[in-house]
Design a protein around this nucleic acid. Structure first.
Lengths: 189, 189
DNA sequence: ATGATAATCGAACGTTCGTTCGATGTCAAG
DNA sequence: CTTGACATCGAACGAACGTTCGATTATCAT
């Protein structure tokens, strides 16, 4: 067989956002019977590519479906052979708590470069009322959208950039902020 | 009802990594019959929370399951009401091409700060043989793991940090690099 | 109160599901 | 060649599936 079954099956999963039934596994793998697909799937379960949940339904196994979260670079680095107990999870699981209130925005400008947020970066933004001083927020200040630190001195709140070229912004009108930056993502390739 | 059905259902999805059957929907929502669950699901489909794929199976709909990828900050910002045609996708779909060869590493040290990669950041690393000059790579150089630019002058390859405090590294022995940084992720809350 | 509209229920249907079984085919080791 | 381990197949099973139906109950503006 050209491509091992697990690749075909997991490709189906990422395309359809669900696992195939055994009939579908047979179809996409070229097997001619459900029971062949059934046995093939059991092999993949033994190998860790798939697992069955409490209800007996197939779901992606520990070898797939997520990212292996490994140790730090300086602390050493597991070899490809010894991929072991490493935490496996989805990036979404890692970064997103409230999917419905979460957005991805592209940053324009360099007002946060000293914080490591550069022009073109993506920021993962969550709509929430729980904004604390020190948070990085996306705010509509005097009719324009900006990304800044949220600061407070006494009763006065203001927005501070992470770039000496820019000035702190003290809002003249009321300041309504409900977007907090939960993560920054920069893609290289 | 306390929580709307779609929240309950999508919570099931993120916990179990699959959509519930109608019997399961009935159970987790408190409905007493499959057909109630069936009708409820159809309402959610009408509202965009769920969709059925070609095979009639439920999958998360455009209102959920992913992140709305919106325009740039400076270019304006859609209000919560007008969440429309925005691209919806999973962070994994956005960032990961080859799941099996992809890792997440925590960066220690500040040798890439000028590139906006700070101590404690997570780097999404893919194992590949296709390394080009200019890429940011994770390399084992003389027995130690580091993250640097991959450069080439003539036949000589070397590793360059993004921090003036550090020096360019010219490997004394052979340099085997197969880990390229595909993205940087920094979490704030 | 009244009627319209929508939500829920329980029963029933044909279909598909996961699973088991026995037969057949394939291949390498003895 | 024989043996055994394993992959594949087709048929069969009951269970669970998605869906439809008609009746009952809740919701709400009139």
């Amino acid at each position: 067989m050209k491509t091992p079954y697990h690749e075909t099956i997991l490709e189906f999963f990422s395309e359809h956002r669900r696992m195939p039934s055994y009939a579908e596994i047979a179809r996409i793998t070229g097997l001619n019977s459900k029971s062949s697909a059934y046995h093939a799937a059991n092999r993949l379960i033994r190998e860790g590519w798939l697992v069955k949940d409490d209800a007996g339904k197939l779901i992606p196994g520990p070898r797939t479906s997520g990212i292996r979260l490994l140790g730090s670079i300086a602390a050493g680095f597991p070899s490809p052979a010894e991929e072991e107990l490493a935490d496996v999870m989805t990036l979404d699981q890692l970064l997103i708590r409230n999917p419905q209130a979460t957005f991805l925005l592209k940053v324009t400008g360099d007002s946060m470069v000293d914080e490591g947020i550069k022009h073109g970066d993506l920021v993962l933004v969550e709509r929430t009322t729980d904004i604390k001083p020190g948070d990085i927020v996306v705010a509509n200040i005097d009719g324009e959208w900006t990304i800044k630190y949220f600061r407070r001195r006494g009763k006065q709140v203001y927005l501070e950039p992470a770039n000496k070229k820019y000035r702190t912004i003290v809002p003249r009108e009321e300041l309504k902020i409900d977007l907090v930056v939960k993560a920054v993502i920069r893609q290289y390739r």
